[in-house]
């Protein structure tokens, strides 16, 4: 082989880069996070749309709601099953965080895992984390 040192060095760098995720995660078998529902959310049983659509579409719903509230001053969302919600992320009992009142246990669990950093909290104030005894 000609220029053996340079070729071998180049190939070692190549293999190291390609296999980087394997040795970065060595001995680290983390499992997927499970967002924790608050007692209130559990009791309510249903969200504004079914759970599976909520999982994939919640960001789009929030984006749409923001525009509906800010541009059309329409604050009420009707689920079509006779139930209404306040189209708000963080105002009042009928808002998103009125029910899902723990950001760290609910929002952040999946967001951190998938490395998503939504800009909701640039403007909105996250719900106060309640201590366990207050929760009862």
């Amino acid at each position: 082989m000609y220029d053996k040192n340079k070729i071998v060095a180049g190939l070692v760098i190549f293999v190291a880069i390609v296999t980087f995720p394997f040795w970065y995660n060595l001995g680290n078998a983390s499992s997927a996070p499970e967002p924790k529902l608050s007692e209130k959310a559990k009791a309510a049983k249903e969200c504004v749309v079914p759970k599976e659509s909520m999982k994939s579409e919640h960001m789009r719903i929030l984006d749409l709601w923001r525009d509906t509230v800010v541009r059309d001053a329409n604050r009420i969302y009707n689920t079509g099953k006779g139930k209404t919600f306040n189209m708000s992320l963080s105002t009042g009992e009928e808002s998103c965080t009125g029910c899902h009142d723990n950001k760290a246990e609910f929002c952040d669990k999946c967001h951190n895992y998938a490395s998503v950093d939504p800009y909701c909290w640039d403007c909105h104030i996250a719900p106060k984390e309640k201590k366990p005894e207050e929760n009862k």
């Binding site: 980087f20 995720p21 970065y24 995660n25 680290n28 983390s30 960001m59 789009r60 929030l62 984006d63 951190n112 895992y113 998938a114 490395s115 998503v116 950093d117 939504p118 800009y119």
Partner: peptide, 28 residues
């Protein structure tokens, strides 16, 4: 795409995501 292959995700990748998505059009 390394965000799917690394846990915990290094903060440099989050900075890259921020830069790449800085137009903030739509969600996601």
């Amino acid at each position: 795409h390394l965000r799917f292959f690394l846990e915990p995700v290094p903060s440099s990748l989050q900075i890259l995501d921020k830069l790449d998505g800085f137009l903030q059009i739509g969600l996601p």
